[in-house]
Computed example of a mutant assay.
Amino acid sequence: MEISKEDRFQEFLRRLADSSSASSHDEAFALLSNTLNKVEDELTDILSQPDRWQSDGRMYPPREDNARDVDGRCDVIRYRHKGHNTFVRENGAIEIQDLAGSLLFKKLGSDGRGVEL
């Protein structure tokens, strides 16, 4: 039985929510990447081939080349994805929004503070 991309995305968010908070941007970035790759490895038969991200049906974590500045926020980096944006703060906080700006996920950094856009 094939699991839909939406169900895999929800499992990714559940696992992120259940994980320990990160204390830095790099920890949060690794948490995002490791969690999503694990979900995709476990719930799909699609091999990880990042150069085929547009056509293979697998979800991929943010990439450094998709990093964008956030106006007025030198402590937050935005990662652009096909259908959403992921914001990572230097304190380890994570926020995922759809392209319309609706909040899909929020995880506080280990200091108890969020991205606070």
Rank of each mutant, 00 (worst) to 15 (best):
D111H: 07
V115A: 07
G57Y: 08
N66C: 12
D45C: 02
A67H: 06
E40P: 03
G114N: 07
I94Q: 00
F12M: 01
F12K: 00
A17Y: 09
R78D: 09
L104F: 02
D41K: 12
Y79C: 00
F12D: 00
N85D: 15
D26R: 11
G83Y: 10
D75V: 07
D71G: 10
D41R: 11
K106G: 14
L103Y: 02
Q97P: 00
C74P: 10
N66W: 11
E116M: 11
S102H: 14
L99P: 00
D45K: 10
S19Y: 03
R14K: 15
L99K: 15
D71V: 12
T35F: 07
R8A: 05
K38A: 15
S110R: 13
R89S: 09
R52V: 05
R52K: 12
D65G: 01
L31P: 03
D45W: 06
I46W: 07
F105E: 05
A17Q: 12
L16M: 12
L108C: 07
N37R: 14
L32R: 04
G101D: 08
K106H: 14
R80L: 09
I77H: 01
T44S: 10
H84I: 02
H25T: 02
R52Q: 12
E11D: 08
S48N: 10
R15M: 06
R113Y: 11
D69K: 13
G92F: 04
L99H: 09
D45S: 12
Y60D: 06
M1D: 11
K106N: 14
